[in-house]
């Protein structure tokens, strides 16, 4: 089966600092890594390839230096890498990013499955994976903790990790599946893989190559913009009422009335 994995190069948040004036990440001098959830997606793809054969193509949208992240996935065992890179993509929000990636995926042609990490650790939106599915008009299964493929019947069986319960769903090929951290432990690179990565060629696709509509690209093509980034104050601790049952109910109703809820 042919699998496309979408990854993102992100700053290593264990090393990142916040600018106290602007409340944004200081990215300068911070090493870049593959978004950890995306590594889970790559691992899942490699496991499926080992079991069912086929090809794993890893794709990212980003500046030229994002090729390093792609090469790290070749060192893990991925087969091909595609860098979607163009100045026109700068400033993309999740809508424009998922549009751009979906155009590149259309250009790449046949695939059975698209895997993404559930979200990136820098933006934390969890929107790009589902966005790609929408642009391509194919099913999406998010928060996968287990993934089995049935290439003969062209479908996947996915266990989704939800807040309270896990849910098992099936989806037909082709579809988008997003991975959670608990899905697997991503493998380390191998020496032979690293040698292969060193020599491997990065296929670069520009805005023109993917036949993108310029009005959907980059900052101008992004319907959302970040107004402010802040950490919401933690929810204050609740108040514990004590006493006899009747007494507690009385106090509770008093408090609800005080707040004019009833």
């Amino acid at each position: 089966m042919d699998i496309i994995v979408c990854i993102k190069q992100v700053p290593d948040t264990t090393e990142v600092k916040i600018n106290p004036e602007t409340n944004t990440l200081i990215r300068e001098g911070v090493p870049s890594i593959i978004n950890p959830f995306d590594e889970n997606a790559v691992e899942a793809a490699l496991v499926l390839k080992e079991k069912h054969g086929g090809k794993v193509t890893v794709i990212t949208m980003g500046p030229p230096q994002a090729a390093e992240a792609l090469k790290a996935t070749i060192a893990m065992g991925a087969d091909e890498m595609v860098l979607v890179s163009d100045r026109a993509f700068a400033g993309s929000d999740t809508w424009a990013t998922s549009y751009t990636l979906s155009q590149a995926i259309k250009k790449l042609g046949n695939f059975d499955l698209i895997l993404c990490g559930k979200q990136a650790i820098d933006g934390d939106t969890a929107q790009v994976g589902p966005g790609i599915a929408e642009w391509l008009g194919i099913p999406q299964v998010t928060f996968a903790v287990k993934l089995e493929a049935d290439p003969a019947n062209k479908k996947v069986k996915v266990e989704r990790m939800l807040e309270e319960i896990n849910e098992i769903v099936e989806a037909p090929f082709p579809c988008v599946v997003t991975a959670v951290k608990q899905m697997n432990i991503p493998r380390l690179p191998s020496l032979k893989g690293m040698m292969r990565a060193k020599k491997a060629e990065v296929k670069i696709l520009s805005a023109q190559d993917i036949e993108a509509d310029p009005k959907n690209l980059g900052l101008n093509g992004s319907p959302t913009s970040v107004v402010r980034i802040f950490t919401p104050p933690p929810r204050g601790g609740g108040e514990v009422l004590t006493g006899e049952a009747g007494e507690i109910v009385g106090k509770l109703i008093g408090k609800i009335k005080d707040r004019k809820i009833i």
Binding site: L188, P189, L191, M194, M195, K198
Partner: peptide, 14 residues
Amino acid sequence: TEEQIMVRDLARKV
């Protein structure tokens, strides 16, 4: 060499 650095860094990482 680049290859020696690769060996060293990978052994360290693993």
